[in-house]
Amino acid sequence: MKKFTLTLILALLCVVTAGCDKDKVDVDVQKLGDNLTQKIKFEDQLTQIDEDIAKDIYEINFEKVKATAFIGSGATSEELVIFEAESKDKAKQILTLAKKHIEEQKQDYESYNPKEIKKLDNAIVIQKDKYVIICVTEDVSVEKIINNSLK
């Protein structure tokens, strides 16, 4: 009886832990974007841009990608962009494109406005499940804010 109970408890534990995907995230990208622009400090005034333009900028040409993007005025490199892909694998592809975008921004700003290079060097480019978040800012608590918002 004891052995049976123990086995049953272990089996239940296995089932429970298997069902729990710690990395699983499910958010509304627009609400997340609105939330983050309120909490993260930006030097520039960020403005939301069209989803399709955001995808063009990041050269994302596959389907079923949602985007919420806030871009600075052009005087700075500041931005906050959130992509939601169809799957984790697609998000991984977006992550690669996002890193490429940041590198290109560094090349552009090197001659255009070198003051921005520090922000771009510290840019947040992360993947959480099927989401990719890019943030360029001077705010040092940006990573903590983003992680807290995704819990």
């Binding site: 841009i49 333009i53 871009i71 052009g74 001659s111 255009y112 406005n113």
Partner: peptide, 18 residues
């Protein structure tokens, strides 16, 4: 900025900072 903020995504923009 004109491209980003007006949503004129049907035109072709050949723009670059600087």
């Amino acid at each position: 900025g004109l491209m980003l903020y007006t949503g004129l995504n049907n035109a072709t923009f050949y723009t670059h900072k600087g």
